[in-house]
Structures are given as structure tokens and as C-alpha cells.
Design a protein around this nucleic acid. Structure first.
Length: 740
DNA sequence: AAGCAATAG
DNA sequence: GGTTCTATTGCTT
């Protein structure tokens, strides 16, 4: 997070300005679009804000007792960041817990895997900045760029000094004369830092310069909690002193390797290297951009970030190797993700599952992902807080999972990630940047956790104590009351959030358990099921024939409930949308787990709790394989429009070759002539609402073979719309219990 | 539109 | 360069 890696304040040596081709060609596509000012006045004033050890600060606010101790934030077995007390004792960022404790035995550790509090505080900072100036771009959770060019214009009238440091001008009396705009910028930066401190209780650094690159580079010149302005005449100096190319923002590991291969190791090297050579290696846009970066030239605009474009939750672990673990972990991740999505209020349009496989040699730790559209009614369920959204999403996730992993073969995962993307523009705001909250622009009226303080316009005369940015020190008490208020609001907004123990950060703080799982479930449902029955809340349910009671007992409560929910046994108008309360046949024997036959053996050989019917066979062990269904998802269109079809008929997918499905379906043993799987009573099917039928058909058709199937290995369209009706869901779940 | 690489904190 | 848990952009298909 924070840019540490400080200290390279030596080599004052060279900053020869001897490059040859100074090719600063502002890309035409940049600027001007978001920032019309840019065309008019190329001289921008950009601020960069960087909060000091952000996670640690947040924890110290949550628990002030932590202020005086060496504090580290632990994620898994890593101390991802720490406060300055811990740093003094040798703890650094991303140090292993063991090493950190060796360095600092009294180190207090707070678990930080749950980013909720950090994320919320982070957005409060962005919001606060946005309330002063609309052009705010986030960079991670703890950094923000602000384009204050316009603000500067308005204040330009008179200004005679700088706030804070001026880069490379220590002790020198600097006359703002030619740099009045930057000087005004420095005052604004000080003002904003003061606001962040007084309103949110957070310290941080700021950089003031004429572009994002320089503002970022200069902001770390004096740490912590100070600010620095870079004058144009010192651009060469700051660039020249960067040291390795890796230090140039925008030059990552891969790029620096390629540059190194060209013989370039210092920023100077890059500055002096012919543009043509760079273009040859990287192409025109990247080549030019790299060259410009080396020169401190950056015309990229500050793009207002607005609300996030994706929400994701992930967890890493030593090993997951059974599909049941995958289901449980996915469920856990989704539970939290869905809550976040709900708060956000936007309806997600695509869903993605990504994973990381363990591979001994190939440490090229690659992530693989599969994504698919979120059926609109499911998206609606998500945002409307429907309790069964989760089950449907797990099902969806498992379909994606099956596209990547052959559950029949051994696998070893070390990470799972669930993600909602393709979010519609935030409501109530003009896409982005607008005045309103970043969290909740939501449709949900109740959920407005945004403390949206009325925080009036700060008069330019912020006066008083900020004529010395250094003195914006930790004055916890002075901001205490306001802080407390903030935190309270925040706590309320997140109350009932899953995860861990609420307030007792201190108690768990010293705990260092490098283990990974926090197995919730296991002990939950303790009732012993008798055979195929399950008794809960005084009622006895018959378990679906394919559900092993032992497996069932171990399932997350959510899924259990879902399986036993009224919707399962009786008609139950689901709250919303299209689910036009069409009665559903009672005990629901239908099995249309898209690719599973009820009689099929379990699919997950690793699942010990399914002793019966272990077919050890491989790809052909299934009497009726997914392959049979595959009614080639490839042929499926990606749009959702549906040509109308008679009720009892299967609706054909949109662009689908009309005659195709019955054909293909008919070719499969599983499908009745009309395209309905044979385990589904056509009469029942025809009575379902049209839309439901359509969903089912899509679900049936879109199934794809496992990777095992040698032929149709790659590609395939997507659109794993799945059956979403009440009749559908527990059937879909079957396959995780008794997979094909 | 999907999947991945690269970059970032 | 690899740890964690995100998030964005751009390339390729």
C-alpha cells in the first residue's frame, strides 16, 4: 500500500539534460475529454495524497489503545503494514509474521484480511476530497490524485508563499513568483490534509506538481505526514534520483525486465535511449509513454473514479482439493460479497470466478477465471437482499468452476475469488464524480450508511493552524469527539456484518494464528438426520433422494435452509420479479441438474462422505455424461432476447438455430423429443411460467463438458444462465452432492 | 464479451 | 520477486 522504500536521497550526481529526442506528444485521446481545462491551460496543478500506513491508522482509530504500541496488520502469515512504532523496531511491510515477531517481540498484531473498515474509511477520504474538488482519482485504498487546476485559478489573486516543503529547495527562500499556481496548490494541499485529519483523524503526505507522475513521486519526499511541492526546474533532479527504472510509476516488473534486456537500468538510460528503439520493442503508445515517464512528462488526466467498477472478495489458503470445500468457500465469499453489492445498490451484470492452482515448479502464479452474465432476476435478488440469491450464485459459481477444474481429477487450489463486474452507472449521480456518496447511491433507501456529513463548503480562509503543515501532528484528542462520531456511524453501517468479532480488536490482536481456515460451520446443525429425513424446527423434511444426509449435515446452514425452504416443498411466491407465483409441484422430484442424471455416481471422488456409487472411472464413468447435454454451448447466443414460443414448447435461444435444440437434445438420451430432459415431466414443464421455461431451457442447453472431454476443450460461448426458479435451484444444487 | 497480463497499493 | 486482498486498464480472441 503505502510507498515505503524510502531512502534514496543520496546521489545528487547527475541530472544532465542531454537527451536528444524530447518527444512529448500528448496523446490526443487523453485530456480534453474529462478536463476541458487542459486544452485551454496545459499547466495543471495536481495533488497526490498518500495516507501514512493506512491500515494501521484505521486500526488505531478503531482502538485508540493501539496508538502507543508497535502495531502490525496481519493478513494470513504476512504483516502487510505496521505503524511507525513498529517500524522503528525493524518491522517492515510485507514481512512474515515470524520475522516481524523476532524483530519486535511486543508487536501487537491485528488481523486485516477483512478489508471492510479500510475500504469504508478509504472512500470517506475520497469523498471528502471530492467535496472540495470533483476531480479525484483513487489509486488503491490509500492514495488519491486531485486535479485542482480550476481551484487554483480561482484563488490565484494573490499568493506569496508555499505551504510545506519545496523539493530540493531546503532552506532556500523560494519566491512563488513564477510558480504562484503551484504555491496555491500547496495551500490547497495543506487545507485538504487538515480536513482529512480533523474530520477523519488520518495523517498523510501530499505532493504538489504539474502532473500525476510528478505529484506522486514528490509526495513521499518527506514522511510521514508532510507535503512537498515540486517546481518545474527540479523535474530532472527528481527523475534522475529515482535510481532504478522500477521506481518509475507505470514501469512494473515485466516492463523493467524488458527494458533491462535493452540494456537500460537507470532512468537516465531510458531518457537517453532513442525513441525508435522503444517503439520497436513496445509499440508506439507504450514506447512513447515510457520515454515520457522517464522525463517526468505525464499528460494523463485525473479521471474521477466514482463508484467502483467491480466488487470482489477473495481468500487464499494452503490447499483446497475437494469440490465440497470449494462450495463452502465460495459460499462464504459470496455471503460477504453479496452484502457489499447490496449496499452498493447497483445490479451486477456479470459474475466472475477466479482461482489459483498450486503448481510446484511453475511459480508463475497464474490466475484463471471464468465469467458469465448474471441473469437479471438474479441480479435483482442480489441487490434486493433476497435470501436465496446466495444459493443461485453458488450454483452459478460452480458452473464456472467446472469449466476450469475437472472435479474428477485431483486438483489443488490456493485461492478463490468471486467478483461482480459490469455494474450499471450509479443512480442519482451523473455516472461518476458527482457529489453524492460513493457507497450508496442505491436503490435501497434504508441502506444509507454514508455518514454524508453536511460538511459545508470550507471557506478558503481555513486560517489558523495550518501555516505549518508539520504541526498537523497527531492531536488525537482535539479530533476525538468528531472521530468518535464517525466511528460510531461507521460501526452502525457495518453492524451485523459477518466475519469476525466486533469490537475486541485488542483481544485478537495478539493472536497470531497462521492457520487459514475459520471453519464456521461444522458444528452448526447437530441434529442427526435419520436416514433421508431431516428434522429441524420441529418439522421433518425428506431429504432429496440424491442428498447424502452426511453431506447435508456438513453443509453451510444457508444451503441447508435453502434445501428445506418452503419453496422446496410448497408453492411460495418468491418476493420479486418474474417469478410469477406459479405453483410448483409439491415434493419436487424433478432433477434437472443440468448435466447430472439422478442416478449418476458422485462426481467428486474426493468427497468422502459419499461412499455409495463411487465410480472410479474417468471420463466415461458416467452413464450419461455432461457431454450428452452439451448441446453445445458454443451455439448459444450471448444475448438474451428470446423469440417467442408456445408455452409448451421450448423457447429457442436467440440466434439459436431454431431446429437445433430438439435435434441435439433428441440426440441425447436425456432429452425428450421436445427438448425437455426426460427426468422432467413435460406436463409439469408446460405449466411453468413461460419465462421460467425459457430459463430452464437455457440452463439445460448451455451445459458444457468438463475439461476432461478432449474435444471441445476451449472456448465455447458463455451465458450460463441457469434455471432460476424455485423448482430449479435445489436441483441445481444436487450436482454438488451427487455430481454426475 | 471473455480471459488474461500487467500494474498498482 | 514473493507474501495479501483488492482494483483498473489494455491486449487478444
Amino acid at each position: 500500500m503505502e510507498n515505503s522504500d524510502d531512502n534514496n536521497d543520496e546521489d545528487e550526481t547527475e541530472w544532465k539534460t542531454s537527451w536528444t529526442d524530447f518527444t512529448v506528444a500528448p496523446s490526443p485521446d487523453y485530456g480534453t475529454v474529462f478536463n476541458s481545462l487542459q486544452t485551454a491551460s496545459p499547466q495543471r496543478v495536481i495533488l497526490h495524497f498518500d495516507l501514512d500506513c493506512f491500515y494501521a491508522q484505521v486500526e488505531m482509530i478503531r482502538n485508540p489503545a493501539l496508538r502507543n504500541v508497535p502495531l502490525g496488520i496481519q493478513q494470513k502469515y504476512i504483516v502487510v503494514t505496521c505503524n511507525y512504532i513498529a517500524r522503528e523496531q525493524g518491522v517492515t511491510k510485507l514481512m512474515s509474521v515470524v520475522d516481524a515477531q523476532e524483530k519486535c517481540p511486543q508487536l501487537v498484531l491485528v488481523k486485516g484480511e477483512d478489508l471492510t473498515h479500510y475500504r469504508e474509511m478509504s472512500y470517506q477520504v475520497t469523498e471528502l476530497l471530492t467535496s472540495y474538488c470533483p476531480l479525484v482519482e483513487r489509486l488503491g485504498f490509500d492514495e488519491n490524485y486531485v486535479d485542482v487546476t480550476e481551484m487554483v485559478e480561482k484563488r490565484l489573486t494573490h499568493c506569496s508563499s508555499f505551504e510545506g516543503h519545496v523539493y530540493n529547495r531546503a532552506g532556500m527562500e523560494t519566491n512563488p513568483g513564477p510558480h504562484r499556481r503551484l504555491a496555491v496548490g500547496s495551500h490547497i494541499a495543506a487545507e485538504l490534509r487538515t480536513a482529512i485529519c480533523s474530520r477523519l483523524g488520518l495523517d498523510g503526505c501530499a505532493g504538489v506538481a504539474t502532473n500525476k507522475l510528478l505529484a506522486k513521486l514528490v509526495s513521499g519526499s518527506f514522511k510521514p505526514n508532510q507535503q512537498t511541492t515540486l517546481l518545474p526546474q527540479d523535474v530532472d533532479h527528481i527523475m534522475g534520483n529515482l535510481g532504478g527504472l522500477r521506481r518509475v510509476p507505470g514501469v512494473g516488473h515485466q516492463t523493467s525486465k524488458r527494458l533491462h534486456a535493452l540494456g537500460l537500468v537507470t532512468v537516465q538510460d531510458l531518457q537517453l535511449f532513442p525513441l525508435a528503439g522503444l517503439v520497436k520493442e513496445f509499440g508506439v503508445p507504450t514506447g512513447q509513454r515510457l520515454k515520457n515517464l522517464s522525463l517526468g512528462v505525464d499528460d494523463s488526466p485525473v479521471v474521477p473514479t466514482g463508484s467502483p467498477q467491480s466488487l470482489s472478495d477473495e481468500d487464499s489458503f494452503k490447499k483446497i482439493s475437494t469440490t465440497r470445500e470449494v462450495v463452502e468457500k465460495t459460499q462464504e465469499l459470496l455471503t460477504s460479497l453479496v452484502k457489499r453489492m447490496q449496499k452498493d445498490g447497483r445490479q451486477p451484470r456479470t459474475f466472475r470466478l477466479t482461482l489459483r492452482r498450486y503448481s510446484a515448479e511453475n511459480k508463475w502464479f497464474s490466475r484463471e477465471s471464468r465469467q458469465c452474465p448474471v441473469p437479471h432476476h438474479l441480479g435483482h435478488k442480489v441487490v434486493s437482499g433476497s435470501t436465496d440469491a446466495n444459493v443461485h450464485l453458488v450454483t452459478l459459481a460452480m458452473k464456472l468452476f467446472n469449466k476450469m477444474v475437472d472435479g474428477g481429477a485431483a486438483f489443488h487450489l490456493t485461492l478463490l475469488n468471486v467478483c461482480f463486474t459490469n455494474l450499471p452507472p450509479a443512480r442519482g449521480t451523473s455516472g461518476q464524480g458527482a457529489i453524492t456518496s460513493f457507497f450508496t447511491l442505491g436503490s435501497s433507501p434504508q441502506s444509507s450508511p454514508t455518514p454524508s456529513r453536511t460538511h459545508e463548503e470550507h471557506p478558503p480562509s481555513w486560517s489558523g493552524h495550518l501555516n505549518g503543515s508539520q504541526e498537523v501532528e497527531n492531536n488525537p484528542q482535539s479530533v476525538k469527539t468528531e472521530q468518535d462520531f464517525q466511528m460510531k456511524t461507521l460501526a452502525e453501517s457495518t453492524a451485523g456484518s459477518e466475519a469476525d468479532q466486533p469490537a475486541s480488536a485488542a483481544t485478537k490482536s495478539t493472536v497470531v494464528s497462521p492457520d487459514i481456515s475459520n471453519h464456521h460451520g461444522a458444528t452448526r446443525s447437530t441434529q442427526a438426520p435419520s436416514e433421508d429425513y431431516w428434522t429441524t424446527a420441529g418439522r421433518t423434511f425428506k431429504l432429496p433422494p440424491n442428498v447424502d444426509p452426511d453431506v447435508f449435515r456438513e453443509l453451510p446452514e444457508d444451503i441447508q435452509k435453502e434445501l428445506l425452504s418452503p419453496a422446496f416443498t410448497r408453492t411460495h411466491p418468491t418476493s420479486s420479479a418474474s417469478a410469477t407465483s406459479q405453483p410448483v409441484p409439491n415434493p419436487l422430484p424433478l432433477y434437472y441438474g443440468p448435466d447430472r442424471d439422478p442416478a449418476s455416481p458422485p462426481r467428486d471422488p474426493a468427497s468422502k462422505s459419499q461412499p455409495p456409487l463411487r465410480s472410479s472411472g474417468d471420463s466415461h464413468r458416467l452413464p450419461i455424461r455432461e457431454g450428452s447435454y452439451l448441446c453445445s454451448s458454443d451455439a448459444l447466443p450471448t444475448t438474451t432476447e428470446v423469440s417467442r414460443t408456445p408455452p409448451s414448447r421450448t423457447s429457442t435461444g436467440p440466434g439459436e438455430p431454431p431446429a437445433a435444440d430438439p435435434q441435439r437434445a433428441g440426440g441425447q438420451a436425456l432429452c425428450s423429443p421436445c427438448g425437455v430432459p426426460r427426468h422432467m415431466d413435460p406436463a409439469v414443464f408446460s405449466e411453468l411460467p413461460l419465462e421460467v421455461q425459457r430459463e430452464l431451457m437455457v440452463g439445460w442447453r448451455q451445459q458444457k463438458p468438463l475439461l476432461k472431454a478432449p474435444s471441445s476443450e476451449r472456448k465455447s460461448s458463455s451465458k450460463y444462465k441457469k434455471a432460476v426458479v424455485k423448482t430449479g435451484r435445489q436441483n441445481d444444487l444436487y450436482k454438488y452432492f451427487k455430481p454426475s
